[in-house]
Design a protein around this nucleic acid. Sequence first.
DNA 1: GATGCTGTACCGTCCAGCCGGTACAGTAGT
DNA 2: ACTACTGTACCGGCTGGACGGTACAGCATC
Lengths: 171, 171
Amino acid sequence: MAETRDRILDALGALLPEVGPAGATLEAVAARAEVSKGGLLYHFGSKEALYAGFLARLEEATAGEVERMRASADHGVETFLRVSSVTDDHFTRTFLSALVLIGTPEVDAAATVARVLAAYRSAVEECVPDPVLARLVQLVGDGLYLNAMVGSLDPAEDDQVIARVVAMTHP
Amino acid sequence: MAETRDRILDALGALLPEVGPAGATLEAVAARAEVSKGGLLYHFGSKEALYAGFLARLEEATAGEVERMRASADHGVETFLRVSSVTDDHFTRTFLSALVLIGTPEVDAAATVARVLAAYRSAVEECVPDPVLARLVQLVGDGLYLNAMVGSLDPAEDDQVIARVVAMTHP
DNA sequence: GATGCTGTACCGTCCAGCCGGTACAGTAGT
DNA sequence: ACTACTGTACCGGCTGGACGGTACAGCATC
């Protein structure tokens, strides 16, 4: 069942920011997903496959997020920056987990993250004509992600920054 | 000798972005530093101590970088953003290595990175009166770091973004 | 000959992956 | 309808290898 698979991937995503890749052993992931280690290995034949599945789901989710941006009323800039600055969002948490995965030998998380960033970038470019400004928007969003990763968000100030950037994109 | 110590830390810094924390075994670090494992453990009694030493040196280097910013002719904003967007800088590489360390159980790299970001932030705030604009500058810099980590820098465009941001900080 | 440092051999632990097994559907032939 | 068989989902013990850390012997230089 795909349901168990998703539960396993959710468990991995929950574990990664807490204990890092080193602590995310197959047994730990299995326990968190309430599956035995054997059961986990039935769905994902190796740790590499597990990580690959996780990153694949992130890329799928990215497509959905980008769609949500495009569909947002005025334009996607604010939607984009809001997601970047909120840590209790499912997508943000998944993305941060992927960042933690960078450097693990089993999988090339950096490449996946790069693709995610690229997808966002082209989406921002769609609604911000000036390419330099579009890149600036994206960089601010990425900066928010980095700060979220190390727990350095400053909600009050960041809200004002977002407002300022949004204003810049309005002629 | 402090020279050997530094060589070991350099080896760790060189290894981390290449193979990640999992690949940075004591033996691998020792080999890269052209020291035996025993020699490494003479200087750093444990892996935790090795990581701690690495992060401590990063914090020291941060102080130096911030000083360089303060001393820069016009103001530090451009100096800051330039460093963030150049991957062959020693400090940048060390910083990126520390990012890869986030999530390892031996050491709290996130806290160190947070302190580094905070140091930069207060330095930027010194030369940019408007706090919102200062935070924006810092977020752009952090975004550049994140993009550097996954190899998504776009030098041509990023140069223009830096110029734009610098212009914004000039009244 | 003491001190600072190096190299090596070894131990204990931990973990990924394997494998033999269980349960429980279907499903088909009778 | 029951029996025999097959595939899917899952379990948990085992093992081989890797890695962190220890012990100890060697070797400069002072």
